[in-house]
């Protein structure tokens, strides 16, 4: 078990390091100079070379590549990703500032998405009307197909500009969280619901269901008592993918709803080639990804007794 854990932790650390290195290389081969983006494009040629030099120096962009890489890596290990080129703030402070907003949004959207997904799966399995089942089963596909910016703007038109129930921008407590949450939860719920509908259907056809049925259990009792538990496990596996969806969705959600957050910060950072900030965000996201997968890997054997038997064998 210890060896299994060490292996997984090592793999996670490698992923984070690789993300760091890859971003560094990518940002370095881009021919544009982050210093140039501090100036009006039309006035670039008028910036005296010594000024450019001074600015590049102050960010350490003039050092040899290897020195820059090692220097940044060394600092990054201590959690210091340098200073944002565009704002002069420290990268860690900038991330820490916006992170809670994105976390709240993603966590809320995840909970809502899981509720929606289970709702869809339960209705699809328990209904006795084929038309309703077909309708509900097509919802996951539909939810992934509607782009978030479209549904977001539509919700705003109806519930904010039309009915005036929720604010259209900014941060005003729970009311400004409702529309972004719903908008983000819908596409995220899609893959989870799809998976659940399938595994609910599979479990419903399993032998033990027939047994319960034969013993006289009601339909509701079978679905909630037996099927629900067994069918939920696969949903945990796609937690990693779900996290990716949440992060990708938050970029657009935060833009449409003018919310503070890491997605929008990343977009701005990329648009302005804010190298230190982009790197800080990428490493942070990679670390979160690795951590979530690590947790899933470590929890799985606890939930599924079959895996507990395999691990020692594989590790030996």
């Amino acid at each position: 078990m210890l060896r299994y854990a060490a292996l997984k932790v090592g793999r996670a650390a490698f992923v984070v390091w690789a993300a760091f290195t890859l971003t560094f290389v990518l940002l370095f081969v881009i021919p544009a100079d982050p210093v140039d983006l501090l100036f009006d494009p039309a006035e670039l040629n008028t910036v005296p070379p010594e000024v450019r030099e001074q600015i590049a120096d102050s960010y350490g962009f003039n050092e040899p590549v290897v020195v820059q890489y090692l220097d940044r890596l060394g600092h990054a290990l201590r959690g210091d990703f340098g200073t944002s080129v565009q704002s002069g703030r420290s990268v860690s402070a900038a991330i820490a500032d916006v992170l809670p907003h994105t976390l709240l949004l993603s966590a809320g959207a995840l909970v809502l998405a899981v509720l929606i997904a289970f709702g869809i799966a339960l209705v699809a399995t328990s209904t006795r009307h084929p038309w309703l089942r077909n309708l509900v089963e097509s919802l996951p596909t539909a939810s992934v197909s509607v782009p978030v910016f479209l549904s977001g703007i539509l919700f705003l038109q109806i519930f904010s500009f039309g009915l005036g129930w929720f604010p259209s921008f900014g941060d005003q407590g729970w009311r400004s969280l409702v529309l972004p949450l719903v908008t983000l939860a819908i596409p995220v719920s899609g893959p989870i619901a799809q998976l659940l509908v399938r595994s609910f259907a599979a479990e419903l056809g399993a032998g033990y269901v027939t047994t319960s049925w034969a013993k006289g259990a009601t339909r509701a009792r079978i679905i909630v008592g037996d099927v629900f538990r067994n069918a939920s496990l696969p949903a945990l596996t796609i937690a990693g993918i779900t996290f990716g969806n949440l992060v990708a969705g938050s970029v657009i959600i935060e833009t449409v709803f003018a919310r503070k957050g890491i997605g929008r910060m990343t977009q701005t950072a990329i648009n302005t080639l804010d190298t230190p900030l982009v790197q800080g965000v990428v490493v942070f996201v990679a670390a979160s990804f690795a951590l979530i997968n690590l947790i899933v890997d470590l929890i799985y054997p606890l939930l599924d007794p079959r895996l507990r038997a395999i691990i020692p064998a594989a590790a030996a």
Binding site: L156, F161, P167, V256
Partner: peptide
């Protein structure tokens, strides 16, 4: 000064009086 990146949200907010 409210930052609203999305054009339709800016005009919508103006029209709705926000």
């Amino acid at each position: 000064f409210n930052t609203i990146p999305e054009a339709s949200v800016r005009t919508g907010s103006l029209v709705s009086g926000t």
